[in-house]
């Protein structure tokens, strides 16, 4: 199970989708689960949106799932409570809503529990696990950590009972480096890098969960090597705005490149995890074509990492 964590706007869903494509290309049956109030992953695959708590094939071998805590709780209670009448009575009652809203973190716990449940599912014919890989696209960092910490909190809070037992199982899964990796997506900018360093610290030291890869997304690199080409006084061509623009955007890309490099250096010097660097994709929108470019980039860098280790 691969969790994809990161600040808003860094491209978590894009990286999650590219990883799912890579897995599917290698013949792995992949579940791409999105933990958020709004679902956005289907858009990347050019597919209509996924209904809450439903699975949908987005691409051959990739199934999308929009995980919703409340729906997961109902599904869970549905399994535990055998009688149909009892279920109806409970789900329709006011007491139930109070119970759900008053038990803090219950929804988050149930959402992560749903992922555990998917991980346990078996193919009816072969008896092997239904999913070869589960990729989890999480909401912005702070909220993502709530989900990930919830099993431990619930395990500590409730000394006995089903929740305690469930929390233990989920915790065993997400804390097992053989099964789970927490991956971070960032851009090479100051604030996202600050947050990445902070989150890595929380994951490793406080939560003691297995850290995976750091994806540095949207890196600008000039199309020429090295320094800014020296141009004979470009700004002395007032009759041609286009020449000025060409010069301006060359400077822009150089400036962004330099800024990106500083932040990449920070990450390289401070992080224990392997880094994967994704170039900025110049495109009107991210579609399958762009996803495939990113997929190839990830694939080749993973190969290099394997060779160098």
């Amino acid at each position: 199970m691969l969790f994809i964590i990161g600040k808003g706007g860094v491209g978590k869903s894009t990286i999650a989708a590219a990883l799912a494509l890579l897995a599917a290309q290698r013949g792995k049956k992949t579940l791409l689960a999105e933990l958020d109030t709004e679902e956005s992953i289907s858009f990347l695959f050019g597919s209509p949106s996924i209904e809450k708590a439903n699975k949908k094939e987005l691409y051959p071998g990739i199934y999308g799932l929009h995980v919703d805590g409340k729906a997961a709780l109902e599904e869970y209670l549905g399994i535990i409570l055998k009688s149909q009448r009892l279920k109806e009575l409970i789900f329709r009652s006011k007491t139930y809503n109070y119970f759900v809203s008053a038990a803090p973190g219950l929804k988050e716990l149930m959402a992560v529990g749903k992922l555990w449940y998917e991980e346990q599912l078996q193919d009816e014919r072969t008896g092997s696990p239904l999913w070869d890989l589960i990729i989890v696209d999480t909401p912005a960092t702070g909220h993502a950590l709530q989900y990930i910490r919830m099993p431990k909190a619930a395990y500590d809070s409730f000394a006995t009972g089903v929740v305690h037992r469930e929390a233990k199982r989920v915790l065993d899964l997400i804390a097992d480096p053989e099964k789970t990796l927490l991956n971070i997506v960032t851009t090479a900018e100051e604030m996202p890098v600050n947050e990445t360093l902070d989150v890595v610290d929380k994951i490793r030291k406080k939560a003691n969960l297995p850290l995976g890869y750091i994806f540095i997304n949207k890196i600008f690199t000039p199309l020429w090597s090295g320094e800014m080409p020296s141009l004979p006084n470009p700004y002395n061509s007032p009759e041609n705005g286009l020449l000025r623009s060409i010069c301006h955007w060359a400077e822009v890309v150089m400036e962004r490149w330099v800024r990106n490099k500083i932040q990449i250096d920070r990450l390289e010097s401070k992080l224990p995890a392997p880094l994967i660097k994704i170039p900025y994709i110049f495109s009107a929108e991210i579609t399958m074509k762009e996803l495939l470019i990113i997929t190839r980039e990830i694939e080749s860098q993973l190969k290099q990492l394997v060779i160098s280790h």
Binding site: I80, I90, S93, F99, A103, L106, G161, V162
Partner: peptide, 11 residues
Amino acid sequence: IFRRLEDATGI
């Protein structure tokens, strides 16, 4: 209902 929910969730 309350008792049932307690049994089901363990809370």
